[in-house]
Amino acid sequence: MSACPTPDRPDRRDTPGTRTTREAFRAGIRAVLPLAIGVLPFGMVYGTAVVESSISNWVGGLASSIILAGAAQLALVDLIDDNAPWTVAVGTALVINARFLMYSAALMPSFAEYPRRWRVPMAMLITDQTAVTSLLYNETDHDPNRRRFFYLGVGLALWVSWGVGTWIGIALGASVSNGFQLEFAVPLMFLALLVPSIRDQSSLVAAIVGAAVTLVARDVPFNTGLLIGAMFGIAAGMLTSAASAASGAIGESAAGAESTATDGSDQ
């Protein structure tokens, strides 16, 4: 299994500058393969939830193909099963997916370079894993075509994996034993993505504040705690970045003044 080609651990088999679009597509699949495998148990957990609910298996399976969002799908199935009003069920799923708005904002500069007709179909594949893996790759390769095909490789591999995991879960149903700790794959996958995305002090502060506020806001209705946490995290990270830039500027001006004073005393 190959490692995700982050800037810290580039995939040495393909230098971005020499890749064709086909190679970029394959590199995307290779980069996301560990995550695609990690998505399988998550899909199985969701598939089991579908079997244990009143929703028909094919509707639950279809949701994986067209919604492509684990947490939102689990909440949707749960709420439909509880006979919640459709506004609450659909609204909750959409609020959970609202974080994709943030990812799409982060991906906006690279999407702007893609042909217009590609943007909506490609946006369908935005998930936590697709966004983070592609954003890391985009830092190493500035060619829009290769970026597009890398993204497609990542997105399609995850889409297939999520669907396969769902149908395995539906097929096995309640026989998916909790003894395998499959649910642990969910936080583990997010953790494996989180750590490489922390590269400096501001991203560390953003992560700590994001996590802390999400925990504090866990009882806020419709699962909006995650969004609130993310917004506080981003704000805290930006403040840290601004503060370190300001202290750097003060340091430079102080050094400059000291240098001028020294120069003056020498004369």
């Binding site: 983070v132 954003l135 997010f190 989180l194 501001s202 953003a206 700590i208 996590a211």
Partner: peptide, 20 residues
């Protein structure tokens, strides 16, 4: 642009906290 680069760590840390 600086803010957008902080989206991933903020959201992912929240997801880790929620699920773990």
């Amino acid at each position: 642009g600086r803010g957008l680069r902080l989206v991933a760590p903020s959201v992912l840390a929240g997801l880790v906290a929620q699920t773990l």
